[in-house]
Simulated assay, not measured.
Amino acid sequence: MHDLIYGVGALAGWIAFTYKLNHLRQDWTNSALRAMVAAFGFSAVAFTLTVGPVYQPIDAALGVPNLAKLFIHSFMVLFSVCVLQLLAFWQYPAPQARHRARVYWAVGLVVVATMSALIAVAPIHDRSTIHFWKTHAGETLLFWYLVMFLVALSAGLLAIAYRSWHFAGLTARMPWMRRGLRLTALGAVLSFGYCACRGGYLILISADVRVEPLVDIAQPFASLGQIVFFAGLTMPGWGPKTRVDQLSAYRALEPLWSALHDAFPGIALHSAAEGDSAAVGDVNYRLYRRMVEIWDGYLALRPYLPAPAASSGPDEPAASDDAARSIIEGLRNRQEGYEPAVVPPTRPPSVRDSELEWLVDVSRSFARLKARDLDHA
């Protein structure tokens, strides 16, 4: 049963790794995507090494019994580091995300180095055993080795759960990303069930009480949690838009976004001074960000719009040509110093099925009408 449970987790890891590696080949400069692929790779290798028919021959080839366990536990710590790095690139400007990533990696590598030192001097290298926890958890050095592993992994998983759930609340206009982030949070909580069971076992061991079923109960939490994790992190790519469609829509929004951004630079979620926005997240996030900034620019422009357009909200869109003409006139009014009208502040609705398509149509109409105005100037 041990090999079956972890084998399923390994298979899911390699499927997720292969799936996202194909995306990475198309967008190698994407820092968030690189972190995701690395996370999937660390997890897949860790689960694969846990399977007995793989673990035992590797131990034999290394010539140091139980050394493969260090690789398994280290890769799981690094897995959590990579996911935290991924979420940082989704949530923060590129320089801030890189700083956070360096901190995560520094802490993770210190943990791995300390674990390596503890297992190197522990008296466990005379015989190999698949029942590592049940056999060695009661030995002093291995007890603290396992405590450090669980504390590091638990901290990473709980941070991932919190940040994923919190960030999901900021992606209301991207339902597939929102669902994926919430599923990622659920996967982190399920994976934490592994830490809770094994941690409870260590606490009881310290009280000279052995409840070995806790070791076995932890296994399904680990495998199921990782499967849910993989599903959540890949879910944004399952949506109705393909990456080609998303890139096309992202580029189509450029004329409207540029005009509103030039008029109201404050709408930028990440300023140019904070780094290259293309490095923040993948195309799902960049498209979502551009939509948010367009709506914020539209709301800032409302006091300068012609009266009928200013009185209608984004949830009551006009035809794309009419909306584009209103925006052009509003930008002209603002540039010429017209006195802005008093418009009650409102927010656009959080979700509308045709929102992206309508914005793309408006942006294309905006570009066409602006070009026509220049020709007639």
Rank of each mutant, 00 (worst) to 15 (best):
S277M: 13
H270A: 11
Y285E: 15
L359N: 03
P348Q: 07
A259H: 01
S350E: 15
R325V: 06
T234I: 15
G313Q: 06
A300L: 13
W257A: 01
Y298K: 03
L359F: 10
Q335F: 12
G232R: 09
V244E: 10
S277H: 15
A252M: 06
Y298I: 01
L331K: 00
G281E: 09
V244C: 03
L233F: 15
A324W: 10
P306S: 12
A278L: 10
E316P: 02
L359H: 10
R364V: 08
V351I: 08
E316V: 11
P345Y: 15
A231F: 12
R347W: 08
E339S: 08
H270Y: 13
E274C: 02
S248A: 11
R251T: 11
A279N: 11
A268V: 07
R352N: 04
R302N: 01
S350K: 08
V280T: 12
T346Y: 12
R251F: 03
R364D: 13
E316Q: 14
A249V: 06
A310M: 03
P240G: 12
D321K: 09
S363C: 01
R290I: 05
S277Q: 11
G225M: 14
L256P: 02
Y250A: 05
D321R: 12
F230D: 14
G237H: 14
D282F: 03
V228F: 13
Y338P: 03
L305R: 05
V360A: 09
A273H: 05
S312F: 05
S350I: 08
P236F: 14
V360H: 07
G237M: 12
P308D: 13
D315E: 15
P303I: 02
A231W: 13
L356I: 01
P345E: 12
A341I: 00
E293W: 06
S365R: 09
G237F: 15
D262V: 02
V362R: 05
L224Q: 03
R325I: 05
V362L: 13
G281P: 05
D245F: 04
D276V: 04
Y298C: 02
P255K: 07
D353H: 12
R332C: 01
W358S: 05
L247Q: 10
Y298Q: 03
E357G: 05
E274N: 04
V228C: 11
P240D: 13
A324I: 08
G237N: 15
Y338E: 14
P240Q: 11
I227V: 15
S271K: 10
Y304L: 00
T242H: 03
A309W: 02
Q226T: 07
Y285H: 11
P303F: 04
I328F: 02
P265E: 07
Q246M: 15
A263Q: 15
G225V: 07
L224N: 13
K241A: 14
R290Y: 06
A279S: 09
L287F: 08
P344W: 00
E355K: 10
H261V: 10
A268M: 12
D262C: 02
D296A: 14
G237T: 10
A309K: 01
L331N: 00
F264P: 02
F264N: 10
D315H: 04
G313C: 04
G297K: 02
L287R: 04
L301T: 00
Y288I: 00
S365T: 07
